[in-house]
Lab assay of single mutants.
Amino acid sequence: MDTYKLILNGKTLKGETTTEAVDAATAEKVFKHYANEHGVHGHWTYDPETKTFTSTE
């Protein structure tokens, strides 16, 4: 398992979190669920070199 990072740049919520996942697709599902639960619906990007997802509203 690898550690993946999420950076949230929402209108009402900003911050970072991490998750352990078997691959990027699994981490993306976890992070999108997390963002949706916190009302963040933004544009998603992923940097495979740093294993970092960013959601920007």
Results as ranks from 00 to 15, higher is better:
9 N>S: 09
39 G>L: 05
14 K>R: 12
24 A>V: 11
22 V>Q: 11
18 T>G: 03
39 G>T: 03
25 A>C: 13
29 K>C: 10
36 N>F: 14
13 L>I: 14
22 V>E: 12
52 T>K: 01
53 F>T: 00
47 D>L: 04
39 G>W: 07
15 G>K: 14
15 G>Y: 15
40 V>N: 04
47 D>R: 03
43 H>W: 13
30 V>A: 09
3 T>G: 03
34 Y>S: 01
1 M>Y: 13
3 T>A: 05
46 Y>I: 01
11 K>M: 13
21 A>L: 01
30 V>K: 08
5 K>I: 11
34 Y>Q: 02
36 N>I: 14
9 N>G: 04
18 T>A: 06
23 D>T: 05
18 T>L: 08
14 K>D: 05
54 T>S: 07
43 H>L: 14
7 I>G: 01
37 E>R: 10
55 S>Q: 08
21 A>I: 01
48 P>Q: 08
36 N>L: 14
31 F>W: 00
40 V>P: 02
10 G>I: 05
41 H>K: 12
45 T>L: 06
33 H>A: 15
24 A>K: 12
11 K>P: 12
44 W>E: 00
26 T>L: 05
36 N>M: 14
1 M>A: 08
46 Y>M: 01
22 V>M: 12
15 G>R: 14
11 K>W: 11
21 A>G: 03
27 A>E: 00
13 L>S: 09
38 H>K: 13
35 A>M: 09
45 T>W: 06
21 A>M: 02
52 T>Y: 02
39 G>D: 07
51 K>D: 01
12 T>N: 13
54 T>D: 03
57 E>L: 05
10 G>W: 14
11 K>L: 15
48 P>D: 08
55 S>K: 03
13 L>C: 15
39 G>M: 06
38 H>R: 14
36 N>G: 08
49 E>P: 08
12 T>H: 14
31 F>A: 01
3 T>I: 12
43 H>S: 13
16 E>D: 05
31 F>N: 00
38 H>V: 14
50 T>P: 01
26 T>A: 14
21 A>P: 01
40 V>R: 02
39 G>S: 05
9 N>P: 02
31 F>H: 01
40 V>C: 04
16 E>N: 06
32 K>P: 00
1 M>T: 11
4 Y>S: 03
50 T>S: 10
29 K>G: 08
47 D>C: 09
41 H>N: 13
8 L>K: 00
32 K>H: 09
28 E>A: 10
19 T>P: 01
3 T>M: 09
15 G>T: 15
17 T>H: 14
10 G>D: 03
27 A>F: 01
53 F>R: 00
47 D>P: 00
31 F>T: 00
28 E>G: 06
1 M>H: 09
2 D>Y: 14
53 F>Q: 00
47 D>V: 05
8 L>R: 00
13 L>G: 07
53 F>H: 00
37 E>G: 07
36 N>P: 02
8 L>G: 01
4 Y>F: 09
12 T>G: 09
47 D>K: 04
37 E>H: 09
48 P>R: 07
25 A>H: 09
26 T>H: 13
4 Y>V: 02
57 E>P: 05
48 P>S: 10
2 D>P: 06
4 Y>A: 02
28 E>T: 03
10 G>N: 04
35 A>I: 06
52 T>I: 07
24 A>R: 10
29 K>H: 10
21 A>W: 02
32 K>T: 06
54 T>Q: 06
38 H>N: 10
22 V>T: 11
22 V>L: 12
6 L>P: 02
49 E>I: 11
30 V>I: 15
29 K>P: 01
37 E>N: 09
28 E>H: 10
56 T>H: 07
2 D>I: 13
29 K>N: 08
2 D>F: 14
56 T>I: 09
51 K>M: 06
14 K>I: 10
45 T>K: 07
17 T>P: 01
52 T>W: 01
50 T>G: 04
45 T>Y: 07
20 E>V: 14
1 M>R: 10
38 H>C: 11
38 H>E: 05
32 K>A: 06
57 E>H: 05
43 H>E: 15
5 K>R: 14
17 T>M: 15
43 H>P: 06
27 A>L: 01
22 V>S: 11
35 A>G: 02
38 H>F: 12
30 V>F: 15
3 T>V: 12
18 T>I: 08
15 G>W: 15
41 H>E: 11
41 H>C: 12
16 E>F: 14
18 T>N: 05
34 Y>G: 01
4 Y>W: 04
52 T>P: 00
5 K>D: 03
12 T>Y: 14
50 T>C: 04
23 D>G: 03
23 D>N: 09
41 H>M: 12
37 E>K: 12
45 T>G: 06
42 G>M: 06
19 T>G: 02
41 H>P: 04
55 S>G: 05
14 K>W: 11
50 T>M: 06
11 K>V: 14
6 L>H: 02
41 H>V: 13
19 T>E: 03
41 H>S: 11
26 T>M: 11
52 T>H: 01
53 F>L: 01
13 L>E: 07
54 T>N: 05
49 E>A: 13
17 T>W: 15
31 F>P: 00
30 V>T: 10
39 G>Y: 05
50 T>H: 06
24 A>P: 10
9 N>R: 11
6 L>V: 03
8 L>M: 10
54 T>R: 07
19 T>K: 02
14 K>E: 06
38 H>A: 12
8 L>V: 08
48 P>A: 12
38 H>Q: 12
4 Y>L: 03
42 G>K: 02
26 T>D: 10
17 T>R: 11
39 G>A: 05
25 A>V: 09
39 G>K: 07
9 N>Q: 09
43 H>C: 15
39 G>C: 06
48 P>T: 07
27 A>W: 02
23 D>C: 04
30 V>W: 14
13 L>T: 11
16 E>T: 12
10 G>L: 08
15 G>M: 15
8 L>W: 10
45 T>S: 12
34 Y>C: 05
26 T>Y: 07
14 K>V: 11
11 K>C: 14
33 H>M: 14
14 K>H: 10
53 F>S: 00
36 N>S: 13
44 W>F: 11
8 L>H: 03
40 V>D: 04
26 T>W: 07
